[in-house]
Amino acid sequence: MILGTDQLSKVYRGRGGRPPVHALSGVSIALEAGSTLGIVGESGCGKSTLARLLAGLESPTAGSISLAGATLDSHTSPPSRERARLIQLVFQDPHSSLNPRLTVEQAIGEVLRVHALVERRRVHDRVAELLEMVALPERFVTRHPHELSGGQAQRVAIARALAAQPQILVLDEPTSALDVSVRAEIMNLLVRLQDELQLGYVFISHDLAMVRHISDEIVVMYLGKIVEQGPYQRVLDAPLHPYTRALAAAVPVADPDLAGQPPARLPAAQAAASTGAAEAGCQYEPRCPLAEAICRQSEPVLRCLDGSHAAACHVAAGPARLTGTRGG
């Protein structure tokens, strides 16, 4: 395990008399070198908060993060430079994550300089090498972000992350702002880089098809908590939690045979409830078509139900398994 979290929580203080927001509650994940952990969920589920905590942009309220076996002192702020180097973030919109006033060489060179990774006279060569890794020609060194297409800018953002020689990339919706035909290029690039460099990826996206394509393990989050976790096929093909099923069913499939006859879809869910103080029962209960009395009384905990496939659901854990109540 190169990256792990133990019962990670983040609470934002409520302003103006409002209750505190539990953005993340008791999240434990584990990432192996060279593998991808996919994180899915709706906006407000805490996936971006998790990314920010992992990257050290914010410190957790409770719980801990360990990197390469060593527990990080999460309360130092800013985080140590070494940690900042080892875990790099790639954001959704490269045009807003790259400084518009810096050329590609300056933007990437800055990282090399801050972490003192190469001698000054070697910066240009190293930048060219990094560009080659992301399949961009050397002549791009003098370009500014506005001279790049979305796909090219995202390649530069990835090259900039790689410049730090990280062990882990936290990819927060890395293809969502790109055109369909460009997404494939970035995905192919990410898979190749992972194989070459044995990088660990935390791949955050609402695009389940992309998450499925690249992930080994998938974590499904709902209102700051993990509701399901396991190998990618298990989570997406045989989901245990009704929320995962609703999420998977909501993905439009570019296939008219499947799209023509809408899948046995769960009833339209209402907008996610507020992330206020946790109530007694299951957080998903108000939206859940399978909720039973127990779901209003006690909150289900994440339990391994089938090998390494875990879910936090009373119904899935109970005798009447979801698969048994499917049909209709």
Binding site: V180, S181, R183, A184, E185, M187, N188, V191, A209, M210, R212, H213, I214, Y232, V253, A254, D255, L258
Partner: peptide, 18 residues
Amino acid sequence: LLGSLPRPGTQHRGTLQQ
């Protein structure tokens, strides 16, 4: 365009059509 999407049947981590 259709080939650039991972669809049911696309190989896991396989090359997507660019």
